[in-house]
Amino acid sequence: MYNSIITGMGHFVPDNVVTNDDLSKMMDTNDEWIQERTGIKERRWIKEGSGETSATMGAKAARIAIEKAGLTKDDIDFIVFATLSPDMYFPGCGVQIQDMLDMPTIGALDVRNQCSGFVYALSVADQFIKTGMYKNVLVIGSEYHSGGLDKTTRGRGVSVIFGDGAGAAILSRTEDNTKGILSSHLHSEGKHARELTVDGPSIANWVPAILERNDPDDTSYYPYMNGTFVFKHAVVRFSEVIMEGLAKNKLQPTDIDMLIPHQANLRIAQFIQKKFRLEDSQVFNNIMKYGNTTAASVIIALTEAFDKGKIKDGDLVVLAAFGSGFTWGSVIMRW
């Protein structure tokens, strides 16, 4: 049976830096309030009129990942694209990547698992590799949040959290079963779907109905989050799914060399770090400068941690995410 290893990674974020002080000019908030609740100091937002989208950012990250893997676009067998902010309602961004990178007519799959998107996408790619169906799979997480946020005081509880960006990884076949993805673990609990959601436009809340209401207080097309409820569930599910992955591989928290948590809230990551008694050198966070980039957050953080020399050959790396759905998951890998 084959195993899968990450052979190349890349990330891209817009040049436009939006600080907490910048947000205080748009809404009733301040740097202290945002940092105390989220740990975020700044984020990247696409500039209006730049032409940047989830797909274009994903393509830029993908080109870097392909080059670092020592491959060409023609070596890629399949595309898995994770996002909650596709360029179009349909089709998904995966097919746009195939076109933008001028690839052969390979398959392209979109994953809609929000904050857990990259972990889910990586697990999907891993199965394609392990069954022998594909040799090199391009996995992308990319988000363009800023265009769909309520940038008023009414929406500050959500809008201060999210940033734009993309990351990509090449998952490749190996016959060395001691390296690469050891296991992945995925879960969902749909009864909490409306605790973190965008209700419309959707088939149940379609554009004509929104226009007909013509209600200036209609927030159904902006993200809604029950922050306290989400936080309480996140810290529990993060812990459970990390332990599930470790137990599956007969490992302990002390075996973790690097934990890459989804960058939802620095307080969640700090809680998990304390619970597992991990040193600062064993956990990588970059939410302070990028905010929550949802499906892109884990791969952007993984790429940065590797580029900074914080991950070395043989390290046990754990990825974990929790988000809307609710969905959550973990990936255990030996670098």
Rank of each mutant, 00 (worst) to 15 (best):
I5F: 14
G8Q: 00
G8D: 03
P14E: 09
P14T: 10
N16A: 05
N16D: 10
V17K: 13
N20W: 10
D21L: 08
L23P: 13
K25T: 14
M26S: 09
D28T: 12
I40V: 13
R44T: 07
W45G: 09
I46S: 03
E48Q: 05
E52V: 08
E52I: 08
T56M: 00
T56F: 00
A59W: 07
K60F: 09
A65P: 06
E67F: 06
G70C: 04
T72H: 12
D74R: 12
I76K: 05
I79M: 02
A82E: 00
S85I: 07
P86V: 12
P86T: 13
D87S: 04
G94Y: 03
G94F: 01
G94R: 01
V95Q: 10
M100I: 14
A108P: 01
L109S: 01
D110S: 03
R112L: 04
V119Q: 12
S123H: 08
V124P: 01
K130R: 14
K130P: 00
K130H: 04
T131L: 04
T131K: 00
G132N: 08
Y134D: 02
N136G: 02
L138V: 01
V139C: 02
G141S: 02
S142I: 15
E143Q: 10
L149I: 10
L149H: 12
D150N: 15
R156H: 03
R156M: 08
S159R: 00
V160I: 11
I161F: 02
G163S: 10
R173S: 15
D176I: 04
N177P: 05
N177F: 11
I181N: 11
E189A: 12
H192M: 11
R194Y: 12
G200F: 03
S202T: 07
I203K: 05
I203T: 06
N205T: 05
N205I: 02
A209W: 02
R213Q: 09
D215A: 15
P216L: 10
D217F: 11
D218N: 13
D218T: 08
T219P: 03
G227C: 13
F231I: 04
F231T: 02
A234N: 06
A234H: 07
F238S: 06
E244N: 15
G245P: 01
K250P: 07
Q252E: 14
Q252R: 09
H262F: 07
Q263I: 12
Q263M: 14
A264T: 15
R267A: 12
A269M: 13
F271V: 08
F271T: 14
I272S: 15
K274P: 04
L278E: 06
S281T: 06
Q282S: 04
F284T: 07
I287V: 14
M288Q: 11
N292A: 00
A296W: 08
I299G: 01
L302E: 00
T303P: 01
E304Y: 02
E304V: 02
F306Q: 05
K308R: 06
K312A: 13
G314E: 05
L316F: 01
L316G: 00
V318K: 01
V318P: 01
L319H: 05
G323L: 11
S324N: 11
S324Y: 08
S324Q: 11
T327I: 14
W328Y: 14
G329M: 11
S330N: 13
M333Q: 15
